[in-house]
Design a protein around this nucleic acid. Structure first.
Length: 191
DNA sequence: TGCCCGATTAACT
DNA sequence: GTTAATCGGGCAA
């Protein structure tokens, strides 16, 4: 049986936690899969929601690590983040893609899509498949309905520039599972 | 109070 | 490659 990841796991630099999340398994109410792609957002980063200080929307980022920060993107989609680092540093990891492993049937129904590769390959898609909305904002990640399981085997991790942002876009703070078919976009080949 | 724009996706050409 | 859909934060007035 895989080991359950506790919230102390997140009490480290977002740049350590982000690659460590690759290959772990995220379940929400028993539905989910293996994390294959994440991005790190540090509070000193202009692209981070916390960069301009605390507001009602981003308040969870300023709280203790190990909690979910959920926000609406482009007025349509939901995006799931894990708060990291000591309380107050306001850094988080955006969960960008999963390899579906648990309860594909309910995810296909929610997404109205049969193709497994696209079920959770993107931050908005993943939230639709797991039925995550603002209602899950500020929930603890090591208590039901959330569950996060440690990897059971070593993984190869690749890093590259983040996606879909205009500020500080060159920083290589996107991490992925090497060779995964379930990435939202491929990583540029290593040079 | 109003206006602009974004950590996106899917349906177009 | 381009664009609409659609909401709330941040900033100007």
């Amino acid at each position: 049986m895989p080991r359950l990841i506790r919230r102390a796991f997140f009490s480290r630099s977002v740049h350590e936690v982000a690659p460590d999340l690759i290959g772990t398994t995220l379940l929400f109410a028993g539905v989910g899969g293996r994390i294959v792609e994440v991005e790190a957002y540090h509070h000193t980063d202009p692209a981070a929601h916390s960069f301009r200080g605390e507001t009602p929307r981003n308040a969870v980022m300023f709280g203790p690590p190990g909690y979910a920060y959920v926000y609406r993107s482009y007025g349509i989609h939901w995006c799931l983040n894990f708060v990291c680092e000591p309380k107050g540093s306001a850094s988080a990891v955006l969960i960008r893609a999963l390899e579906p492993t648990a309860d594909l049937g309910i995810m296909r129904r929610r997404r109205r899509l049969s193709e497994t590769r696209l079920l959770c390959s993107g931050p908005g898609r993943l939230c639709q498949a797991l039925a995550i909305t603002r209602a899950q904002n500020s929930l603890a990640l090591d208590e039901p309905p959330f569950a996060l399981f440690a990897r059971t085997e070593p993984v190869d991790i690749v890093a590259g520039p983040r996606i879909g942002i205009t500020k500080a876009a060159a920083l290589p703070w996107r991490y992925g599972l090497k060779g995964s078919r379930f990435l939202s976009k491929p990583f540029a080949p290593a040079t």
